[in-house]
Nucleic acid binder design. Structure first.
Lengths: 219, 219
RNA sequence: CGACACCCACUCCU
DNA sequence: AGGAGTGGGTGTCG
């Protein structure tokens, strides 16, 4: 509840600039951390701030570089003061920008439980858009091989994304927005993704269990 | 002579990053443009900067893609502050990477007028190296046919290159270097080739004349 | 099928 | 000033 500096809310100490939100931004956008280590202040959750079912737009971003110690996170932004906004850490060994971009879209879709609703998801990753709009069709036929005759990367996430889209009754439209062009949703989702990258890894229980004991397979 | 921005020299306006050299690089490597349209500033040519006859190493590169509007250029790099460095536009209709790679080696050899001198030319094109080291021998016998029984492409340049090598007294050694592995000469020649690709096409008078009126044939 | 190169696009970073 | 993550394509030969 208290602010560290007037107008600023530090998510975690000892970080570079750019990973801070103003208190107002934080209050309005972050859904609340479940991990105690990073939840330095709890989020005021006014019931009246919950906005249900308006036209849904989402956006995704990731932080993390091409190095060994990369930490990727994803952000999903519905709108200011919208409690559906997400901010999560990417799981798994491979922490890359593209994995995060794909995963962000997955979480965006999952975050809308009403399968009849049509979604429009904004992303700055033409990579993700091309996967869905063009490449995946060929890959489903040729066993996920690139034109270079190498296995497509991040197949696990791509297949999951495909299933997710197919499982919906409403349409899922992906729209490209340019990064760093002053797009508001894009910028906000970027902040959320940075917060997400600080959180500890989320272990995907289903996958783990499926690998260790092939018992569970509830979709 | 004047710099557009401190530390930078714009070869041509309205281009993406990557086709700019720092002023220092430009000053030390480019031999000077002959085409007025691109010669925005003249090069200071200190006589004392001329380095004559040290062990000669060269390198070639090209810019241009596999499309209709491709523009290929070649670069030959002897060393920093070496006025023998070249930066030229590829001539002719077919602007392809491989034509440029071959032509770059041709210009590299031509640029050394002392025929007794042994040359070592570095190129990242295994294609060119294979042509000279392996394939050309067979082609001279079978009339330049590929194993697919189709005419070898870029025969004009390949034959010219062969003649050039044979005409020399000193040896011509081709050595492969991997691109994008931090090889200095390779990177510098790459920059030169990009500059070259902006220049207007050089019409090869000899070839034109030989095609239109079969009169001239002075080698 | 293999090899080398050339490019195009978007993003992520340092 | 630099690199990595990812896909699509062509130029050329064996």
């Amino acid at each position: 509840m208290p602010k560290t500096k007037p107008g600023y809310y530090a998510v975690r100490k000892g970080r570079k600039p750019g990973i801070y939100l103003t208190w107002k931004e934080y209050e309005s956008q972050v859904k609340g951390f479940s991990d105690a280590k990073y939840q330095r202040f709890s989020l005021k959750t006014d019931a009246e701030n919950f906005i249900n079912d308006k036209k849904e737009t989402t956006n995704s971003f990731c932080l993390g570089n091409g190095t060994k110690e990369a930490k990727a996170g994803i952000g999903v932004f519905y709108g200011d003061k919208d409690l559906r906004n997400l901010s999560e850490r990417l799981s798994g060994e491979q922490q890359t920008n593209n994995r995060a971009e794909i995963y962000a879209v997955i979480r965006a879709i999952e975050s809308c439980e009403n399968k009849k609703k049509s979604l429009e998801i904004f992303t700055d990753s033409l990579h993700v858009i091309n996967i869905i709009r063009e490449w995946i069709e060929k890959w489903e036929k040729n066993g996920y091989m690139t034109s270079n005759n190498k296995p497509v990367r991040n197949q696990d996430l791509i297949r999951k994304l495909k299933k997710l889209i197919d499982s919906r009754i409403g349409s899922v439209k992906l729209t490209h927005v340019h990064g760093h062009q002053g797009n508001y949703g894009n910028e906000q989702a970027d902040k959320l993704s940075k917060i997400g990258s600080f959180k500890d890894e989320i272990i995907e229980k289903d996958e783990k269990l499926e690998n260790e004991i092939s018992i569970r397979s509830d979709l």
